[in-house]
Simulated assay, not measured.
Amino acid sequence: MAEALTIARPYAKAAFETAQAKQQLAAWSRMLAAAAAGVGEPVVQTLLGSPKLPKQQIAQIFIELVGQELGDSGANFIRLLAENRRLGLLPVIAQVFAQLRADAERTIEATVISASPLGDEERAALARALKKRLNREVTLQCETDPRLIGGAVIRAGDLVIDGSVRSKLERLGLALAR
Rank of each mutant, 00 (worst) to 15 (best):
E3W: 08
T6R: 01
A8T: 02
R9K: 08
R9Q: 11
Y11Q: 05
A12R: 00
K13A: 09
A15F: 03
A15Q: 04
A15K: 00
F16P: 00
E17M: 05
Q20I: 05
Q20C: 06
Q20A: 13
Q20N: 15
K22C: 11
K22W: 03
Q24E: 11
W28Q: 06
S29C: 02
R30W: 00
R30T: 13
M31I: 10
M31A: 15
M31W: 01
A34N: 10
A35M: 04
G38A: 11
V39H: 03
V39R: 03
G40N: 08
E41P: 00
P42D: 08
P42K: 06
P42R: 07
V44L: 09
T46W: 00
L48F: 07
G49R: 00
S50C: 09
L53N: 10
Q56Y: 08
Q57T: 12
Q57K: 15
Q57F: 05
Q60P: 01
E64Y: 12
E64C: 09
E64A: 14
G67E: 07
G71K: 02
D72W: 02
D72P: 00
S73D: 12
G74A: 05
G74D: 02
A75Q: 05
A75I: 01
F77G: 04
L80P: 02
L80V: 15
E83W: 10
E83A: 11
N84Q: 07
R85V: 15
R86F: 07
G88V: 05
G88K: 01
G88F: 08
L89P: 03
P91H: 06
P91L: 01
P91T: 07
V92H: 02
I93G: 07
I93D: 04
V96K: 00
A98I: 01
R101V: 10
D103Q: 07
D103P: 03
A104E: 03
A104C: 09
E105G: 11
E105Y: 01
R106T: 14
R106D: 11
T107W: 02
I108G: 02
E109N: 05
A110E: 09
V112I: 15
V112H: 01
I113D: 08
S114F: 12
A115G: 04
S116F: 11
S116G: 09
P117C: 08
L118W: 06
L118V: 07
D120Y: 06
D120V: 15
R123P: 01
R123F: 05
R123V: 09
A124Y: 00
A124E: 09
A127R: 04
K132I: 15
K132L: 12
N135V: 14
N135M: 13
N135L: 12
R136M: 12
R136T: 07
E137I: 05
E137Q: 13
V138S: 13
V138G: 10
L140H: 13
L140E: 05
E143Y: 11
T144D: 02
T144V: 14
T144H: 03
P146L: 14
I149T: 10
G150W: 02
G151H: 04
I154P: 00
I154F: 11
R155K: 10
D158M: 03
D158Q: 08
L159M: 14
V160H: 07
I161L: 13
V165Q: 10
R166L: 14
R166Q: 13
K168F: 07
E170Y: 12
R171N: 15
R171C: 11
G173H: 06
L174A: 15
L174H: 12
L176N: 03
A177W: 07
R178Y: 15
